[in-house]
Write a protein that binds this DNA or RNA. Structure first.
Lengths: 113, 113
DNA sequence: TGAAAGTATGAACCACCGTTCATCCGTGTG
DNA sequence: CACACGGATGAACGGTGGTTCATACTTTCA
């Protein structure tokens, strides 16, 4: 797959590696994955998300903050509530692909080295 | 992308959510991303990887173990060394897509809620 | 304006995990 | 067989971060 950068021995620019790790970190806990998958379907308010995923309101806010800082979700006020949604289609695609690939490698098991 | 359960309010089968989080956890640290990206180019022995990523041999072994248990890489003996490679193309694709998407959302910044 | 609903925020707690250190196991070599 | 090399493994340490608790902020409503 073409990307753009380099052409010889990349050494994988540390920044790129860090960026991937930082973003993928968002998908590394069940709570955030749950929130993101819910938001992939439709925009939801914090209160709705709390009911959806069954975590405390504070925990949801904290995790939404993390996702916001990573540019994965955005939230806008609507009355006294705040409605969150995925930042753009890239996030939705990333989620879909993550789910897809994980389904296809649930083989992950024994493998005596 | 239903597989079996649900129909109305998916609740995103906790197992699927957990599986995604567990697998994405592999991409959530620079060290593992570095190792995986290196292995995406070509199979490498532990010693080569140590030289590539500049971590201690023990740390590399520990992280390779994590990746092995997740079914992302496999290793086979060759003399006294062990050569690792990505488990299959799914892993390579997942890596490519992760890098691709992360490049396209480095926008992650200010966004007053 | 006072109260309540909805959400954000900071601190503290605790568990997880990535790294290091020391050691052990397996495989070639003299 | 003894030794060196390559790699794995377990214990311990330290830092990160997810959750909870308590509280503050904003908006709506009576």
């Amino acid at each position: 797959m073409g990307h753009g950068i380099d052409g010889d021995t990349p050494t994988r620019s540390k920044e790129a590696v860090d960026a991937v790790a930082r973003t993928m970190h968002a998908l590394s806990t069940p709570s955030r994955v749950h929130l993101l998958l819910r938001l992939r379907d439709e925009p939801r308010t914090v209160g709705e998300l709390v009911a959806d995923v069954g975590m405390e309101q504070s925990a949801v806010s904290h995790q939404l903050r993390v996702l916001r800082h990573l540019g994965l979700v955005v939230g806008e006020r609507d009355g006294r509530q705040i409605r969150y949604r995925l930042h753009d289609d890239h996030v939705a695609q990333l989620l879909d692909e993550a789910v897809f690939h994980v389904e296809h490698l649930t083989t992950g098991r024994v493998d005596p080295v």
